[in-house]
């Protein structure tokens, strides 16, 4: 209701200047960049915000140098299974996880610096048919994995030295969990979205499945990114990368939905549409024929800001509370954007290209 009363921001007012290029990093050894992330790393008593870049066969750690340059600190190499995702662990230092697999995640590995023997190491955290994984505060990792008979939702705690401590199992819903999000303002709550378009809520302390709330078929293929608890309501940021364009759905890339966990009822708060000229295109063939790919490839949400790469090759930034696009980064002349990630805060945006170039923008 709120967003419908707002005047949309005209495209001319979307200022590229609100994203200021700070520095550029080029991984010359990388054949094809698959992910990028920011991570706190400490060396010689100095804690710095470093950048992690991933290609299919390697993951590199970069530290800031004077004159807006970046120096490679270390590169972890991997064998036959390709790297497909970096899994950052919030509020941690000298630790980052990665997911490896083909079409879906087959294993999760931890990359770390060990001060015990002054070396960079990697260790295996989990294997299986992993559908979703998320790094949680307090050096924990939650994942959903599936066997033929059952689904397992598990939390693994990691020690400072990177060793896996006792795991905890969460009660799984019947349907497959495809994404997780921590709930800001409620430390013991975790939400997930499922393959049949429900939002589920867990109690992390007890492992109980507290509530399953259907999102509605007008918002198909929803993925949760963030959740916030306030005034007895649960606000969940959802994206709809494969939504079918319709009167009810429009061309929204992100929505904020308010759920009342007591009654399982929900209401749309804001929706953030693709900027004009960047709307989706109809898929002519295949199982998704007739669907409209919304021009949203992949993105990241932090606090109340979302950033996503569009099929047009641009990166858009939205204010999710206002429900409007507030900045647009056109395709770089050297190549279109492939990755958009917030650093540890929304003050810094990491924009990546497939050739391994990562641009850091101050927002």
């Amino acid at each position: 209701d709120v967003v419908e009363q707002l005047t949309p921001v005209p495209l001319d007012d979307l200022r590229e200047e609100s994203l200021q290029l700070v520095s550029k990093l080029k991984d010359c050894s990388s054949s094809c960049a698959v992910d990028v992330s920011a991570v706190w790393w400490e060396a010689a008593g100095c804690r710095e915000l470093c950048v992690v870049t991933a290609s299919e066969s390697s993951v590199s750690l970069w530290k800031p140098l004077p004159a807006a340059c970046w120096g490679r600190v270390y590169t972890w190499l991997f064998g036959e299974i390709p790297v497909i995702q970096i899994v950052p662990l919030p509020d941690t230092c000298n630790l980052v996880c990665i997911a490896l697999g083909e079409l879906e995640i087959g294993e999760i590995r931890l990359l770390l610096y060990s001060s015990e023997n002054d070396s960079f190491k990697q260790s295996l955290v989990k294997t299986g048919n992993i559908k979703a994984v998320l790094g949680l505060k307090g050096r924990r990792l939650v994942s959903s994995s599936r066997t033929v008979q059952e689904q397992q939702v598990e939390i693994v705690s990691l020690s400072e030295a990177g060793r896996s401590k006792d795991g905890q199992t969460l009660m799984p819903p019947e349907e497959t969990v495809l994404a997780f999000a921590e709930v800001e303002g409620m430390r013991d709550a975790l939400v997930g979205t499922t393959a049949v378009n429900s939002v589920v809520v867990w109690n992390l302390k007890t492992g109980q499945l507290l509530r399953k709330m259907h999102i509605g078929y007008s918002y198909p293929a929803s993925i949760c990114h963030r959740a916030y608890s306030d005034a007895g309501l649960l606000f969940v940021v959802l994206s709809h990368p494969h939504a079918k364009e319709s009167e009810s759905c429009g061309n929204a890339a992100f929505r904020v939905i308010a759920f009342n966990p007591t009654t399982a009822r929900s209401a749309a708060v804001t929706f953030s549409s693709l900027p004009p000229g960047h709307a989706g295109r109809q898929v002519p063939r295949g199982p998704r024929a007739g669907f409209v790919i919304l021009g949203y490839l992949e993105g990241d949400v932090k606090d109340a800001s979302a950033a996503a790469v569009l099929t047009s090759g641009a990166i858009a930034v939205w204010d999710l509370l206002l429900g409007c696009c507030v900045a647009l980064l056109p395709p770089d002349p050297a190549g279109t954007w492939a990755l958009a990630r917030w650093a540890t805060t929304t003050a810094c945006l990491l924009a990546g290209q497939r050739d391994g170039t990562v641009c850091l923008y101050r927002y």
Partner: peptide
Amino acid sequence: CSESDLGPISLNWFEELSAEAPS
């Protein structure tokens, strides 16, 4: 969002659902 849309709102929903849910 109003209470008429969403039904009665409880500030203690997390504790209440935790007390009711199977463990």
